[in-house]
């Protein structure tokens, strides 16, 4: 699939900014709109846009299929294990206050940890679904 040179160069210029915006939405989720879910979808959208213009094979060189499919459960594990330290310290599961002496900072760290789990699962799931659809279309 050969596309217009303007489209290819334009997309190449856009990609880092899309990723930057996704990371901004992720890390700034405590203060601004957004969070792990939105950031995950946006970063998956970056890979999908790259795949649409440059082909899925080149997209799979950036985000290999085996890695994407392993990241889907890894995010859930990150989320679930973010609550374990509090449990071992004798507090409730998913109590964030143990991450720092200052409760606000503890909450921020905790939220960041679980949102990391969310962004990993969401981005990987969206990309995996996209790959699955595209591969099915090729083999059929």
């Amino acid at each position: 699939m050969k596309h217009d040179v303007i489209l290819r160069v334009g997309v190449k210029l856009l990609l880092p900014f899309i990723l930057l915006f996704a990371l901004y939405v992720h890390y700034h989720g405590d203060y601004g709109p957004g969070g792990g879910f939105q950031a995950g979808v946006i970063s998956a959208g970056m890979i999908i846009l790259y795949a649409l213009v440059f082909g899925v094979d080149r997209a799979k060189r950036i985000a290999p299929e085996w890695l994407v499919e392993r990241l889907v459960p890894a995010g859930v594990l990150i989320y679930a294990s973010a609550g374990l330290p509090a449990m071992f310290a004798g507090k409730n599961y998913l109590d964030y206050t143990i991450y720092s002496h200052d409760p606000l900072h503890g909450h921020e760290w905790g939220v960041l940890l679980v949102e990391t789990g969310v962004i990993v699962t969401v981005a990987a799931t969206m990309t995996a679904i996209f790959y699955a659809f595209v591969d099915r279309g090729r083999s059929a």
Binding site: Y31, G36, Y79, H107, V114, T125
Partner: peptide
């Protein structure tokens, strides 16, 4: 807690629900 109340409710007050949601996406 986090100043964005939406994030605070999702990831802090209702952390268990969000874990379930992540599992649903998975």
């Amino acid at each position: 807690i986090a100043p964005n109340i939406v994030t605070a409710v999702l990831a802090d007050y209702r952390s268990f629900d969000t874990m379930g949601e992540t599992a649903v996406i998975f």
